[in-house]
Each structure stands twice: as structure tokens, then as C-alpha cells.
Design a binder for these strands. Sequence first.
DNA 1: CTTGCGCTATACCAACCAGTCAACTAAGTT
DNA 2: AACTTAGTTGACTGGTTGGTATAGCGCAAG
Lengths: 204, 204
Amino acid sequence: MKPESESKRKLLETAMEMIWESSYGSVSVEDICVRAGVNKGSFYHAFKSKSDLAVAAFERHWEHKQPKLDKIFSPLVPPLERLDNYCQMIIDDQKEKYASFGKMLGCPFCSVGCELSTQDEKIRLKAEEMSQRRLRYIESLVRDLAVAGYIEAGDTMELAQEVRTYITGVLMQAKLENSMRRVERLQQGIMRLLGLKQHVTAAA
Amino acid sequence: MKPESESKRKLLETAMEMIWESSYGSVSVEDICVRAGVNKGSFYHAFKSKSDLAVAAFERHWEHKQPKLDKIFSPLVPPLERLDNYCQMIIDDQKEKYASFGKMLGCPFCSVGCELSTQDEKIRLKAEEMSQRRLRYIESLVRDLAVAGYIEAGDTMELAQEVRTYITGVLMQAKLENSMRRVERLQQGIMRLLGLKQHVTAAA
DNA sequence: CTTGCGCTATACCAACCAGTCAACTAAGTT
DNA sequence: AACTTAGTTGACTGGTTGGTATAGCGCAAG
């Protein structure tokens, strides 16, 4: 396997960051190249088009996140704790972005997906795929919560989708309000949706 | 009061439609003018900037929707019925757009707000305002549901925000998946969030 | 040494962009 | 008739866009 070139790596990272911070439409290929310290020629050697870069950047960003998710949703962790940790991860991520950019950025897949879903089918599909992957984790969590008797064992698949939808809404709303408030109450909302009584988490 | 010029009216309608169908960034002032049958000069006579037009179009769109909302959320209507009718309105609206554009468009305020919230503060504020207005209706509904004993009378304001957030998420997810599925289960999710038992609505 | 190849560098393109401008029309108002 | 105001027109500007063309680079295999 050839080790992906440094330029390509830098372009992927820079692109994700810039598009996340503003939007796909308002960031030009030129902008990305300048910030990444790469020439335009190299850009079009590495990627067919701007749209292609976005898709690749999505994948890259996911690959970066996956290990953390695998750890949080490990079957070894009790399901209530998984929920705690997952919500905390989202809070931490958003806080970090808020600290470094001075504004709420929300979920990059949803933001960009929403911006382009009606115009660029490849990007829409990739965003949908990312959303699906997140759903898999939530499904396993909800299923285990049901098995452990914390929630009613109705249609757990449907319930998981509702939880994902709610999370999407929270991140969206947070971006719109440019405030952490909604994100901070994420867990509370999820628990209400799940029909879980508010519980006090033992100190870690 | 001077009766707003025909050009201005046409521009507002056309802009809303085009931006909703694709996105703010991918629709040019020229595009809007051509489709509206208005000259560029007239555009800049009527609006200071593209961003200004977007804000005005938001307001216009709201004004168009408000009478329907007032009717649905009328205190004369029993609260459970209000919820039914509101969900049905959302379904109908989305279905209509899907029929005429061949794709799911979601909520225009949220979509555009999300696209531009990190770049154009005036647009973000307007989108937030629209979201707030929707919240007012939901608050009154949730309050009345609590008074009528359908739900626990905890923090109804917080609960209303969660419902709004969930709706935002549903419309977002529907756009991303380009499917009506999530929208069709909107009511079910809201009821779960509210802690309401699934109820059978009497035929209208 | 030299051939080939992945990558870089830069000049270039036609299309497009938001916004400007000065000249113009039409309809009051005094 | 003289003046004001509201709206219209379309050419124009200066800059940007995504994408291309092509020449050159360094390096590894033959």
C-alpha cells in the first residue's frame, strides 16, 4: 500500500476544518489550497473535484472519530454509562469547537449534508451513510438498555432512530442559536425520549 | 401605506422558493432576477443586498404561514387535536414540496439558518427568531396538555423546547435521507417525548 | 545514466459573482 | 410647466470561481 501523500492528508484535514467552520459553498478550492499550503495542481491531482474532496473528507473525519465511539459504546461498559459518556463526548466536542472558533459549529455531516442534499447526490449519500453509522451505535445502546430492563422493550429500532433524530435536532438548534444550552441538556432529552427516569451518575 | 411594488413581491416569493429548493450559496442574485422577471437594477433598488433579501423573504414566508398556525393552535381546539393537526400540516407541507420538486426540502429557516449561521449574523438571528416563534405555539400546546392532565406538569417550557428540537431534527433528517419516512412518524416521536400514550384520533 | 512516474508548480481560462451606475420613465404635487 | 419621487433598465466593474494545461521536479527501478 502506498502511503497517502502528505498533501492529500493536509488537504483532507484543512478542508474538513474550513467547511465545518463556514460552509461548503463559501469555501473555495483556492482557499483550501492556500491554508493547506498546497498548490492547485496538487489538489486536482489528488481529487477529481471539490465535491469529491468533501466526500473524502467526510470519510476521513469519521475514521478519526470511530475509535472513540468504539470505546464509548463497548459492550463491556454498562449501557447507562455508555449513554452518559456519549453525551459527554458530544458536549466536549462542541465545547472545544466553540472555544477555538468562537461559535457553535454543530454536526459537520448534518450541516453540509443539509446544505447540499438537494444539489449533490454523492454528498447527500455520504452524509446519510455517516448518519447511519451513528445510528448503529445508538441501536446497540437502546437494545442493551431494553435487555437490561431500563426501558420498555418495544420497537427498539424505531426508538433508536428517534434518539438519533433528536440528537440531530439538538446540534442543529445549538448551531442556530449559537449556544451550548441545548447541548448541555442533551442527555435529559434523550432520557425523556427513552422513558428513562433521570438518574444520578456515580462519580467516575 | 404604500402598496409594496410588484417587483419586490415577486422577488421575495421567487427567492424563497429558489433558496429553499437548493441553497443560499448556490442561487445567485442573477438567477433570482431572471426567474422573477425583474432586472438587476430593480433588485438593488428594492434590497440593499442578497443577505437582506433573504431576511425579508424569511419574514414574508412566515407571514404567509402564520394564519394557518393561528388556526391550528387556536385555544378553542382541544390540545390533542392541535397536536394532530400540527403534525398533519407539517406532513402535508413536506409532501407537497416533495411532489413539486421531486425531493425533500425540510424546513427552510433551519436549512438556510444552518448554512449561514456561522457566516451571516443577521440571517442567523432571523432564523433563530423564526424558531422562537414556532416555539411559542408549541409552548402553549404543551402547557394546555399539562393543564388538561394529559402530561405531567413538570417544566413545560423545557419540554416545549425539546419538542421543537425534535421537530427540527425530523425535518433535517428527512431532508438528509430524502424521504418522508421520518416525517410520517413525527407525531409518534413527539408523543413519546411528551410521555403521552399513543391515542387513536376520532375520524374528522 | 536514463527512462518512467507520482507529484508539484504556475499560468491560464471561460464563466460567473455581487454589487454599481447613470440614464430613463411614469405618476403625482405644487 | 417645473419639480419630486418611485421605480426601471441593462451595461459595466473588479474580482472570484472550479477546473485545465503543461512544464518541471525528485526519486526509484532497470
